[in-house]
Computed example of a mutant assay.
Amino acid sequence: MPDNMSKHAKRQSARKTEIVKAATEIFFREGYGRASMDQVHSVVGGSKRTLYKHFSSKDELFIAIIERVSDRVLQVMVPEEIEGELENVLLTIGESYLKVILSKDGLSLFRAMISEATHFPTLAKQFYEHGPGKVSSELAKFFRTKQKQGEMNGGDARAAAEQFLGMLRGDVHLTALLYGQKPRGASIVNHVECVVTSFLKSYGGNDKK
């Protein structure tokens, strides 16, 4: 019986993932306002009852899309699993973060929210809480640990996290959003190195001053 339940759970999880992937294409292509649950159903097939069992509304489905992208960021931003000194950890985080937000899905999500935010302010708030805000919170936790260990100056860890991520995005993210110009390879590495150097001048421990 447990094995059957496990297989059932796996099928349900796979179905949910399939729905989110299909919805991602539709929402990014049509925009939140024009996209509909009927469009998603026409792509994934099956019964509408199953679709609404997984996601009771369009809002809930869009939040799942947001979390799918933000989870990709969080998966590559696990400082505790990155070996080395703080500088090396930040370099790794920076490069991984940029690769995700400059990806096709990352850029499409930001573009969708920019175009829909004024029409759906509640959705915009949910986007921040489940996306950028969540990433900042997780990074702030890591910074607090480093502050306790003396590797970073004291102060507002959340503000430090927001500043670090904001410096990483900078014009690199803006130009990619506006007209698709994305840095590659060495350009990303150089950008991240400059950001980390500047960040540690302000927030590094006593040995970094």
Rank of each mutant, 00 (worst) to 15 (best):
M1Y: 12
A9L: 10
Q12Y: 13
A14H: 10
R15F: 11
K16R: 15
I19K: 13
V20S: 08
V20L: 10
K21Q: 15
T24W: 08
R29I: 05
Q39G: 04
V43C: 06
G45T: 02
T50C: 10
K53Q: 14
F55L: 08
I65L: 14
R68D: 15
V69A: 08
S70F: 05
R72Y: 04
R72F: 06
V73E: 15
L74W: 07
Q75S: 14
M77Y: 04
P79E: 00
E80M: 07
E80A: 15
I82K: 01
G84M: 11
E87Q: 15
T92A: 14
Y97C: 14
L98Q: 08
V100L: 05
V100H: 13
S108T: 08
L109I: 01
R111I: 09
A112Q: 15
L123G: 05
A124Y: 14
Y128M: 02
K134D: 05
V135T: 07
L139N: 02
R144D: 01
R144F: 06
Q147P: 02
K148D: 12
E151H: 07
E151A: 12
G155Y: 03
A159Y: 05
A160H: 04
E162W: 04
F164V: 04
L165Y: 00
L165K: 11
R169P: 07
G170P: 05
G170R: 04
D171K: 08
V172R: 03
V172C: 00
T175C: 09
A176M: 00
P183V: 01
E193R: 10
C194Q: 15
T197M: 12
S202H: 11
G205W: 03
K208S: 12
K208G: 03
